[in-house]
Design a binder for these strands. Structure first.
Lengths: 186, 186
DNA sequence: CACGAAACGGATAGCGGATCCGGATGTGTG
DNA sequence: CACACATCCGGATCCGCTATCCGTTTCGTG
């Protein structure tokens, strides 16, 4: 593809910056709102991001990349249980500190191919980490590969429910995950 | 209050029946839709239930009552751990088999006073059950009263995420809860 | 500088939530 | 039995958000 025109690139950045701000302050993304705050027309926003989900996934992409990176590194950890628990911890902490990621993780069907690709990479790493931990006799036998993501989404969700504010979400999430990990260990 | 007029009572029933059907088939409640299916005007629906949440809570009320009932009965169980695990199991199974309950449970601020009342009863029972189990040395010390509901919402949520259909949700939920319970035990 | 492609932006359709009020329908009273 | 009033019905209507469409503007290349 031809590279983006200068003004288009500028507006793309503006939109993403505003979207990131909105997500961080907990406001649900509304494309009209994004357009207004970015000083752009609604049409411009919708050309760059056809749906709310597309924008949300783009906002979450850097976090997904970071998780995929960590997943690959976890495979070099000599301690299978440490690699496993660390991997899950990252998965939960990322979701708790970033609502956009939580939504994207919980959604089965993606809008952007890039999102699917990254999710797959994370899944692959997770499966490998789990397999090693299981082989080392560190985790229960009846834990399936496909259980990891849902369980982590559940922990993140439990942290959000009835939460008073973003302040003490992280410690709560760690507590919940610790408890679950104890149940997962063999 | 004066009792409902005959036609009003009839319509109230119709609305609730339709709403229950919609919830059961997994469709999100839309009051316009409810009105059409019940053969009533939109205004009628909105007079009986000012918001979607009000209707949802009314639909969920019988389930909440059942849970509160069971909570009271659990206090008579001589085995503290059995009472505890049974209580949590009911909490999860109810949410998994009824989306309306899952939403109501996860919402911090209620619309109807009756909902708040029932939630409080359940919370009270849960606290008591947890206290006894803790006193018997059956559960971890660092589990707070307020953690029970969020954790059960989390388990139910994990079951919904990436779920292929309502068919095998219940076994999955039991598996997840078993794992968590293992982590909760002392 | 001039021209075509690409991007802009706002008017507008479509949809769901929620409201309002003129008309219909039960219910208690003379 | 009939009347009157409170209550309820129902849909036309408003509002906010998503998404589209198309005339106008801007970029960058020859």
């Amino acid at each position: 593809m031809t590279p983006l025109r200068k003004d288009a690139a500028r507006n793309w950045d503006r939109i993403l910056t505003v979207a990131r701000e909105l997500v961080d302050e907990g406001t649900p993304l509304q494309l009209n709102d994004v357009a207004r705050r970015a000083g752009l027309g609604v049409g411009t926003v919708y050309r760059h991001f056809p749906t709310t989900e597309a924008l949300l996934e783009t906002v979450a992409t850097p976090c997904l990349e970071a998780l995929a990176d960590h997943g690959r590194k976890a495979l070099e950890d000599p301690d299978p249980w440490h690699a496993f628990s660390e991997f899950l911890t990252r998965l939960v902490e990322a979701q708790v500190s970033d609502p956009s990621l939580a939504k994207v993780a919980a959604t089965a069907t993606d809008t952007l191919p890039r999102t699917t690709e990254l999710k797959q990479q994370i899944m692959t790493a997770g499966t490998e980490v789990l397999t090693r931990a299981r082989a080392a006799g560190a985790v229960r036998e009846d834990l399936a590969d496909g259980d990891l993501v849902p369980l982590m989404c559940g922990v993140a969700y439990a942290t959000y429910v009835h939460s008073d504010g973003p302040a003490d979400r992280l410690p709560t999430a760690r507590r919940y995950l610790d408890t679950l990990l104890r149940g997962l260990s063999a």
